[in-house]
């Protein structure tokens, strides 16, 4: 029994990080309707950003998230500005498909550039939290995971507050619901896209900072998370922030608890079975809005 509880706790903690990464993807998709296949590559950029901040400045990994966030906001902002915006502007009707091709291509370019720049070495950072464990009633809870989880929850609350209560946050939501009407309100939709992309990348920066104390960094590390993120986003409901986070928790739980009962190689299939079952029952995802 302890084993199962331990697995459940781990599943939730890890699921929180999956959720955070998926929230970023969901936000960008929900607002700009961009299917961002470069998401994993951006996570990798975020991880390397955090890595270099930690290596060069030797600050606390959780503090590094703020520094990385500043840089990554502009990275995301100009990523959208330079690569995606021109296509959205030029190809009004066929842009969706082109953007998929574009982001897939950018993924390869970013990953290969990282390979050239940083080499294929696996890197890890020993932080003050690495390998630290809290023992609670016979359960080992890994410190960096718990801290990462709690901060993820806080971050998502902050994001929701921003979207609900601030003028620009409202503009982001408005643009996601009706782009043309948003323009009529005086909202610069392309700026909303850029800022949203920036925010999404900042979230990845935080996810990277939460991962770094117990993870490794490598040009292809994004591949480990990106497939899962798409599943989570659809499971949670396209464009829903809370849904994406919840979806992350569910996938984390299935992955961790499921592996205690069946072979982990089968767990992937289990995730997809749950995923398909959910979509049959609720085609719009857990917290998705019905489409008219």
């Amino acid at each position: 029994m302890t084993g199962i509880i331990e697995a459940a706790v781990n599943g939730i903690l890890m699921g929180g990080l999956y959720g955070l990464i998926a929230v970023s993807l969901s936000l960008i998709f929900g607002v700009a309707k961009i299917v961002n296949f470069a998401h994993g590559a951006l996570l990798m950029v975020a991880l390397f950003t955090v890595y270099w901040i930690l290596e060069l400045l030797k600050v606390d990994p959780y503090l590094s998230a703020l520094l990385a966030g500043c840089f990554l906001f502009f990275f995301g902002y100009y990523f959208q500005r330079l690569f995606i915006e021109p296509i959205l502007k030029r190809e009004k009707d066929t842009a969706a498909l082109t953007v998929i091709l574009l982001t897939s291509g950018l993924m390869l370019i970013i990953e290969n550039s990282a390979l050239l720049l940083f080499g294929a070495d696996y890197r890890t950072v020993r932080t003050a939290y690495t390998g630290k464990v809290w023992e609670v009633a016979g359960l080992y809870i890994m410190q960096p995971r718990l801290i990462g989880f709690v901060l993820s929850v806080v971050l998502i609350r902050l994001l929701e507050f921003y979207l609900r209560r601030t003028n620009f946050g409202r503009a982001i939501r408005a643009t996601s619901q009706d782009r043309e009407a948003a323009r009529l309100m005086g909202i610069d939709d392309y700026r909303v896209y850029k800022v949203t992309f920036g925010i999404g990348t900042v979230i990845l920066g935080f996810a990277a900072a939460f991962l770094t104390p117990f993870y490794f960094i490598h040009p292809a590390v994004g591949d480990l998370f990106v497939g899962k993120s798409f599943v989570i986003v659809v499971l949670g409901g396209l464009g829903s922030i809370t849904g994406a986070f919840l979806g992350g928790l569910i996938v984390g739980l299935i992955e961790s608890v499921g592996a205690q009962f069946i072979n982990s190689a089968m767990v992937e299939s289990l995730i997809f079975i749950v995923f398909i079952a959910c979509l049959v029952i609720r085609p719009m995802g857990l917290l998705g809005k019905e489409r008219e």
């Binding site: 503009a171 939501r173 408005a174 619901q177 009706d178 009407a181 009529l184 309100m185 909202i187």
Partner: peptide, 19 residues
């Protein structure tokens, strides 16, 4: 009308004053 259907009445009104 092109309202923002998933937002509150208040949010819709505030968006009118976005600029």
């Amino acid at each position: 009308r092109r309202l923002f259907p998933a937002m509150t009445v208040l949010d819709n009104l505030l968006l009118g004053a976005f600029s």
